[in-house]
Structure formats: C-alpha cells, structure tokens
C-alpha cells in the first residue's frame, strides 16, 4: 500500500535551495490533509550535515545518500538512487522542485517509476484521497487542473519555485535522518565538465522578487545600466523582451515570455516593452506590474497596475531618485 508524502530536496554547494523548504511546507500541508507522514529524500555530497534541518518545516524523516558521486546534479546518478529509495518507501505523493535541475530530474524519475507527472504546479489540493494539481499551460495563458487516475501511485508533482508558501522554520524541530541503503550507479555515461558561476552573482529571473525589464524602447545595450541601477536598489534583477535579446543587447537567459522564462515576481517593471502576447504570457502572473511606455495605446498597459505614459529616458532617472530617497529614509 502506498503511504506517505515524500519530498525530494535540492541541495547545492552545502545548502538546501529555498525551493526545498517550500515543497517541505507544502508537503506538510498535503500530508496533514491525507493523514500521512511527511518524508524526504535528500541527495548530495555533504547533505547529511544539514538533513535534520528539514524537521523545521515539518519533515519527519529524511533518507539521505551523501556521496562524492552525487556532488553535482546528474540525472544519471540522481534518478536511479532516488527511484530505488522511493520504490522501497512507495509513497502516495512525491513533490519535487520545478527548478532547472528539478524539472530534468522529475521527468526521468517519473518515467523510471512509471508514474504520472504534473510539471511546474502552482497550487496543490487534496481531493478523494489523492492530489489535484493546478499548473500553467501556454506559459500562463491558461491553467489546467490535473488529476491522477485511481490507484496510480506515486502521484508526482513538481512545484514552481517562489509560488507556494514557505513556513517559518522551527529550529527546535529536527527530522530523523537515516542513511538510505541503496546501490550507487556507476554513472560513467555522463559527466559534469565544469560549472561556471554567473558574474556578479546575478539572481535568476525565476527566483527574483523584483524584475526590471527592458525592451526595444531602451534603444541600445548601454541604456540598460539604468535598469541595472533600479534593479540593484530594489534588490531585484534585470529581464528583457525578445526584441532586446534578439538585438544582442541582453543575454538569452534574460528573456521573459512564452519562449523565455515565465516569471512571477512581486513586482515587474516593463520599460519600453509593447506587451506582445508572447511577452505577456511570461509575466502576467506577476503580483504587481508597472509599465513605462511613451505610447498610451501599448498593450502592456492592459496588464499594468500602474502605467506611466512617458519617455522612459525622462521618467526612469526621476523614478530612480525617488526610490533612492525612499530607501534612504526607511
């Protein structure tokens, strides 16, 4: 009989990534509703040292595999190890992170387990003793509710980072930690050649609370300095429309939209972006949207909570000054 809710953590450079705590918190809620225990699988070199911290988010027991083979994420090593643990545990629900590595892992894991996978879920519910998951399609132009067929376990859902509520950690609670007794795969078909960190520790768009994006209206790459400054003061990061990326003004990783990153920050500031349907698909779920555009008819205004109809080269310097003043007084 399938039993329990199990989360799979994401561990990088000696620490759990925040999304792990989000899925632990969500997992706790689901486990309570199902009346099941909350378990975790934690893989990675050095993960054993921090595994019990998951207790602070409601995890009861963590199965760890701490080995040099698992230093960096590779589907080839992570998937068979996690799959074997899960086959032994046979949980009802498996929650994973819909991060870059998490999505990669989840797909291969689900195939190995012969399980149904709902990717990038933004909301989970319990109904009829199982999971019901809401997920965006068409980059957020529509949402689907997914359900698993009767009696198919585990129900695997990857959860979009930064969307689900994260409990405040209760540091007094520790999870029980057990070394999982599994065979380590050879892992000789794939290899991580190198990992090069992005300069300046730029926050990824999918993880940023504030995004200041620029489009063709920015006129040239040099003018993005203004957006960098604003994003810097707001603790955010810079994004771009496809036009700005196609023009070579910004790296492809900055592209927001249906064929770029789909983002959900608290604040999205669109500067010199018209609001094409592919761009809107990627950012319409942001909590607050500000648009700065000199064309009052630009479609971006239909999505903006606050619209500024003005030349951005005139408006942004004044806005940056005001934000600086605010930040210096509070």
């Amino acid at each position: 009989m399938a039993q329990g809710v199990c989360i799979i953590t994401e561990f990088r450079e000696g620490a759990f990534r925040r999304v792990s705590f989000e899925i632990a918190s969500e997992g706790r809620r689901i486990a309570d509703e199902l009346g099941e225990p909350l378990l975790a699988v934690a893989l990675g070199e050095g993960v054993e040292a921090v595994a019990s911290d998951l207790g602070g988010y409601g995890v009861e027991k963590v199965y760890v595999v701490d080995d040099a083979l698992l230093k960096d994420y590779r589907a080839e090593t992570y998937v068979p190890v996690a799959a074997e643990i899960l086959q032994n545990l046979s949980p009802k629900v498996v929650l994973t992170a819909a991060s870059v590595d998490g999505k990669d892992f989840s797909a291969r894991l689900a195939a190995r387990l012969g399980a149904g996978l709902a990717t990038d879920c933004t909301e989970l519910k319990v109904e009829g003793g199982g999971l019901k998951a809401k997920r965006p399609m068409y980059a957020g132009k529509a949402f689907a509710w997914c359900e698993w067929s009767d009696g198919t376990w585990p129900q695997v859902a990857s959860c979009r980072p930064n969307v689900m509520d994260c409990l405040a950690a209760d540091a007094s609670k520790k999870a029980e930690v057990e070394k999982a007794d599994v065979a380590l795969p050879a892992g000789n078909l794939t290899q991580v050649v190198s990992i090069e960190k992005d300069a300046g520790g730029k926050l990824d768009l999918t993880e940023a609370e504030v995004i200041v994006s620029g489009g063709r209206g920015m006129k040239g790459p040099e003018n993005f300095a203004m957006l960098e400054e604003l994003a810097g003061i707001l603790g955010g990061t810079v994004g771009a429309s496809r036009s700005a990326v196609d023009s070579g003004w910004r790296p492809h990783a900055d592209q927001v939209g249906q064929t770029g990153k789909v983002v959900t920050p608290n604040l999205y500031v669109a500067c010199g972006i018209s609001g094409a349907i592919q761009h809107l698909a990627g950012m319409s779920s942001s909590k607050y949207i500000v648009a700065v555009n000199k064309d009052s008819e630009a479609p971006i205004f239909s999505k903006a909570d606050y619209g500024i109809v003005e030349d951005l080269f005139q408006f942004l310097p004044a806005f940056i000054e005001e934000v600086k003043t605010l930040k210096s007084t509070c």
């Binding site: 996978l117 529509a142 509710w145 997914c146 949207i289 909570d305 619209g307 004044a318 000054e321």
Partner: peptide, 28 residues
C-alpha cells in the same frame, strides 16, 4: 494516462490599472 487534465481555467483577469497623472517628478 496516469495523469490527465480534468479542467481548465483562464488566469484571473487583472483589474484595469491606472495611468498616473502629473509631470515627471509628480508621477515618479
């Protein structure tokens, strides 16, 4: 199929926002 879509919904319509009035500094 082990998992299937049982319902779809459209994203919540965003409330029509407002365009701010005034000169540059007032708007900022």
């Amino acid at each position: 199929a082990k998992v299937s879509v049982t319902a779809m919904e459209m994203p919540q319509e965003r409330q029509p926002g407002r365009k701010l009035e005034g000169d540059t500094v007032e708007k900022a």
